[in-house]
């Protein structure tokens, strides 16, 4: 076989491989969720308010993954207020599921840094003081927050945690909390 023929065969095989790879890539679903916008009657006088349907993921005793639950949030005028309501839902938890957050933890404030697509979350002191310890517990809390937020609000690409208004080195001596976290959707089981 001449060199030219070999080259032609190689090009044909490569083109086929590229085509197959492209087909496989196109089949891959984008990760994330587009919250559904809903209109709800909020009083007997016929007042209507906008709600969005969000998908929250919680931990369970029977699975190492976070499992989905749907909730609705009334859409406020200020976007950051929507994030705050969303985090309140996470902290409130869901019966039958585990909320990997120590008791007494509350959100003090939050800021969205649009240029960096980063959400800053400032929790109160019990987050560190009452944290039960353990690498798994730290990772469960971090990715419970980060995955839920980034999954429902695609404009947020990363989350940074503060405790009592300050940067904290770790939650309980393991994971570096000074850097922002990107989502790791491998924690989610979307069933």
């Amino acid at each position: 076989m001449t060199r030219q023929k070999r080259l032609l065969i190689a090009i044909a095989i490569a083109a086929l491989a590229v085509l197959l790879a492209a087909l496989l890539l196109l089949r891959k679903k984008p990760v994330g969720f587009e919250p559904e916008l809903l209109n709800r009657e909020i009083d007997k006088g016929g007042g209507i308010a906008e709600f969005i349907k969000v998908k929250l993921f919680f931990l369970s005793e029977t699975s190492q993954y976070l499992r989905p639950v749907f909730r609705e949030i009334e859409v406020p005028e200020i976007r950051e207020e929507l994030y705050r309501k969303f985090i309140s839902l996470l902290l409130a938890g869901d019966s039958g599921h585990i909320t990997p957050v120590p008791g007494g933890v509350q959100l003090r404030s939050l800021h969205y840094l649009g240029a960096r697509q980063m959400l800053l979350l400032d929790f109160n002191e019990p987050l560190a003081a009452a944290f039960p310890g353990g690498t798994s517990a730290e990772l469960e809390f971090i990715y419970f927050m980060v995955d839920n937020i980034c999954y429902n609000f695609r404009e947020i690409k990363k989350v940074k945690f503060l405790i009592g208004g300050n940067e904290s080195k770790t939650l309980a001596g393991h994971i570096d909390l000074e850097k922002p976290f990107f989502p790791d959707f491998a924690w989610l089981k979307d069933e």
Binding site: Q64, I98, T135, S136
Partner: peptide, 23 residues
């Protein structure tokens, strides 16, 4: 030694550092 919010979690694991989690 490890601890989890899931009381049923058990077993051993070994970690090395992750750079993917770096900004």
């Amino acid at each position: 030694v490890n601890s989890s919010f899931r009381k049923s979690a058990y077993g051993s694991e070994t970690f090395f550092v992750s750079l993917q989690a770096t900004d």
